[in-house]
């Protein structure tokens, strides 16, 4: 299955290639995403998920509000559109 990740604000759509998280993937693609702990602890990497679904690969300390995902703990389950 070929998944894509769309960074809405940056106006880019990129084919998903294996990365440890959406945060790492955004970084590899030169998209600036804020973070602090990189481990689901601080909530700094929270971003709105405009379409699609994600998988949590690491259990965060707090689940974000509906419609928001923690980029450092997730990978795409379907193609996703992020407000980033």
């Amino acid at each position: 299955m070929n998944l894509t990740v769309t960074f809405k604000r940056s106006g880019r759509t990129v084919a998903w290639t294996e990365a440890e998280s959406l945060l790492a993937f955004a970084e590899h693609n030169g998209v600036d995403a804020p973070f602090s702990c990189g481990a689901g602890v601080c909530g700094t990497c929270a971003a709105a998920l405009l379409a699609g679904d994600v998988t949590y690969v690491e259990d965060p300390l707090y689940l974000p509000d509906p419609g928001v995902v923690l980029l450092c703990c997730t990978t795409p389950k379907t193609s996703v559109v992020l407000d980033l």
Binding site: S36, C37, G38, A39, G40, V41, C42, T44, L61
Partner: peptide
């Protein structure tokens, strides 16, 4: 800020 090492303490 919180860092990765804060996971245990904050849990």
């Amino acid at each position: 800020i919180d860092l990765k090492i804060d996971k245990g303490p904050l849990h």
